[in-house]
Design a protein around this nucleic acid. Structure first.
Lengths: 359, 359
DNA sequence: TTGAAAGCGCTAACAG
DNA sequence: CTGTTAGCGCTTTCAA
């Protein structure tokens, strides 16, 4: 179906070596020969096979990317960052999604290895004790984790513990004391666990007792009974909810409204991720925002370094800046939206609600 | 760096053919030999090279996917659909983004051809007169367009004209007569043009004169002067805006609120795409919803058919259903959110606003 | 400046 | 059941 270098050689009456040179080192060829060969290439719709080339030992210039899902904008964003940075260096992406499933993670990495990717960027369910990654280490295939937050491996992320702590502090500063943390599945995510640690830290620092985390289903239509139980007593219920991700926060806000609670009037809600959509909600979602695109971009920079590529970022800058280490931890940012408010004592609230009270 | 089939053969004291068989047709081997070979494979961390295999003429089981950007959830969703369907058939995706740039489209397709993808699924800026696609036709590389709406090529999409027409009809049914259509760049998108045709159709059918379309910048922070001019006269301004995509609709709604106009009280807004996020806005976005994931899934089905794969969908069903043609046009769905309302005559409005009027 | 030839990792006859 | 061998499309010495 495809024409090969041999077809081109035959068509233009030269050797295959000459065709190869026309492709790779045209400057070494006689202008006429070159023109002739190029004509044949055109005529035959010849497109050199990366396969043949790579078999000769040349690198594939392919990077594998492994993400749980693109339905989560967090990963779509970071994929964008990787894509932009990698294509600028002439690398192509090979994408695999895992749906947080370890079987699929394994198959994904296998496939990518078979394709002889030069390296890979992955977000895995468990970054610390992960045999797949251990194997990559052993065989020496370069990889960088994105979003996973661990010191054991090359991993670009925010500092999840501190980010969560800062988020909770923002709530504490607004006078909240009964702050409950909600999470999707802890099993699914080392990140959720670190975020809970941050929550604990902030609470303990403030002399408060952390609640146990409340795990809830990511796809729930309604609030789980366990949460509703927490909310039943207006005087003792949490005054703020810290959700381990934005999607959860949105589900919760919707559920709270459904249950007749005002956000942030009755209860504040803080998310985590800072997905762009959050800002579009009419009550903009307050969230601990993470620089997802930058996470992707920096993951690439680390990988590029491992691959021995010149750092295009560094090239732009002054030479003496060139050896500045590429960061593994990126800054987070507590985005004060409109879903968190200062805590008001119940007594004061009642007073404020009395219409008779003069202004 | 990688060990090869030859290393394994040497390590286990068999021929390379035997190793190859251990990989591809293990049932043909003596159990002991097989075990021995597998041991060596383990010991050497051997992973067969897809390169070598494919060079022998076996298909790559790779599909190229070309989309403008993943920042638009529409494409992230359809990519998900492609991914799910393709991996179910054992195919892998190679992703390239183009940012609607024709140079990048060309490079993307070139790369994919070099990688010898078995076929590709693409969303291009211009589907009809596109030399790149013509070339694919000429060389016989199977491809299917997704979202592009044209009869000239295999393309899975909604019927953009009818979808837009139905959306505008929903506005007309609510009594709107002064309906203005806003679009991003027409140059960028054959789809936007078809949607304008649908708008025209609906208006003319209703005996109304269509407005000229108003093109506006996709990334604008504020409403363009041209639109503000349209809105200045409360009695003659459009009572509804039809936006050629949801992102635009969201920008417009924000801008309208900023300008002191109530949505949908003062003016209705209808989007197009039905991105999930729209439903999360506190005033849920009304939109002509397109089944993006299904578009991806069906694009794969068409490609799979061109590749001569058995249709996994058809297998599930009764045999007599098996030859049911795979649709090119998928159903759209006018999602009545909360940003469109019935038109109320100004007089009636004024009356309703007078607090003295009894209920 | 060009050609001949070896070989990259693998599969698939064809023998044994 | 297993080994030998001939390529697949390309790059890269080495010679001419």
């Amino acid at each position: 179906m495809h024409s090969t270098i041999r077809d081109v050689a035959a068509h233009s009456g030269v050797s295959i070596a000459t065709v190869s040179r026309a492709l790779n080192t045209p400057e070494l060829l006689n202008a006429e020969t070159l023109a002739k060969v190029r004509e044949s290439i055109e005529a035959l719709d010849f497109m050199p096979s990366a396969r043949g080339r790579q078999l000769r030992g040349v690198s594939t210039r392919l990077v594998g990317v492994v993400v749980p899902t693109l339905a989560n904008p967090v990963f779509a964003e970071s994929l964008q960052g990787i894509d932009e940075a990698a294509s600028a260096s002439g690398y192509r992406l090979m994408l695999m999604t895992t749906a947080y499933d370890s079987g699929r993670e394994r198959r994904a990495i296998e496939t990518l290895r078979e394709q002889r990717v030069d390296g890979l960027i992955a977000t895995v369910a468990d970054a610390e004790s992960n045999p797949l990654l251990d194997e990559l280490d052993r065989i020496g295939l370069p990889y960088v984790l994105a979003h996973n937050d661990t010191a054991c491996r090359a991993a670009v992320s925010v500092d999840n513990r501190r980010a969560a702590r800062d988020g909770v502090r923002a709530l504490l500063q607004r006078g909240h004391k009964r702050i409950l943390m909600l999470a999707g599945s802890f099993a699914e995510s080392d990140r959720a666990r670190l975020r809970y640690r941050g929550y604990e830290n902030a609470m303990l620092d403030a002399g408060l007792t952390p609640y146990a985390p409340l795990e809830m289903d990511f796809n729930a239509e309604e609030l789980p009974a366990s949460l509703l139980a927490h909310l039943s007593d207006p005087l003792r219920r949490p005054t703020a909810l810290f959700c381990s991700n934005d999607r959860l926060a949105m589900i919760v806000i919707r559920g709270l409204r459904h249950a007749g609670l005002l956000v942030p009037g009755d209860i504040s809600v803080l998310g985590f991720d800072g997905i762009p959509l959050g800002e579009w909600l009419s009550t903009a979602l307050s969230s601990v925002a993470t620089p997802n695109r930058e996470i992707g971009r920096h993951a690439w920079r680390h990988l590029a370094k491992q691959l021995g590529l010149p750092d295009s970022k560094a090239i732009d800058e002054a030479a003496n800046e060139a050896n500045e280490p590429i960061p593994f931890k990126l800054p987070h940012n507590v985005r004060t939206g409109a879903t968190i408010a200062s805590y008001i004592e119940p007594a004061a609230r009642m007073a404020a609600l009395e219409p008779e009270n003069p202004a």
